[in-house]
Computed example of a mutant assay.
Amino acid sequence: MEIVKIVAFAFIALAIVIILRKSNDTLAVQVSTVVGILIFLFMISKITAILQLLQQLAIKANIDFVYLNTVFKILGIAYLASFCSEICRDAGEGNIASKVEFAGKILILVLSIPILMAVLQSILKIM
């Protein structure tokens, strides 16, 4: 059970961060950031496996890779923007966090326009 390892690691890190926050807030934020990055790195192998599975399914379903790559980029933007905004909030910078989330949403919207146009063109062909 990998989640048990992650949760145990997170709780230990949380205890350390709480202790450090009383004496050195800057170091506490740095430890919190490093812990978040380590958990993310631990999950990269799982993310890779999921992406490979989705690619295999797309090949079987004859889905154009342009659309699949766009969906992967959108997912990456969503996860990275969320990760970054949470780190900013941990550091007490809610204003920066909200701007990162806003930028992520705009980038997702920009990437989704070609997919939206393809769907609309398909609908128009059907009519």
Rank of each mutant, 00 (worst) to 15 (best):
M1F: 12
M1I: 11
E2I: 09
A8E: 10
F9I: 06
L14M: 13
L14G: 15
I16G: 01
I18E: 06
I19C: 09
L20R: 04
R21D: 14
R21Y: 07
S23C: 10
T26H: 11
A28I: 00
V29L: 09
V31I: 11
S32A: 14
S32I: 00
S32G: 13
I37W: 00
I47D: 06
T48E: 15
A49M: 09
I50T: 15
I50Y: 10
L51P: 08
L53T: 13
L54R: 02
Q55W: 10
Q56S: 15
L57D: 10
A58C: 08
A61T: 07
A61V: 00
A61R: 05
N69P: 04
T70L: 02
F72K: 05
F72Y: 14
G76I: 04
A78N: 08
Y79Q: 14
Y79S: 13
S82T: 14
C84W: 08
S85Y: 01
S85D: 04
C88H: 08
R89Y: 10
G92Q: 09
N95W: 12
I96C: 07
S98A: 09
S98L: 12
K99S: 09
F102L: 15
A103I: 14
G104P: 06
I108F: 05
I108H: 05
L111T: 05
I113A: 05
P114R: 01
V119W: 02
S122A: 12
S122F: 11
S122N: 13
I123E: 04
L124M: 14
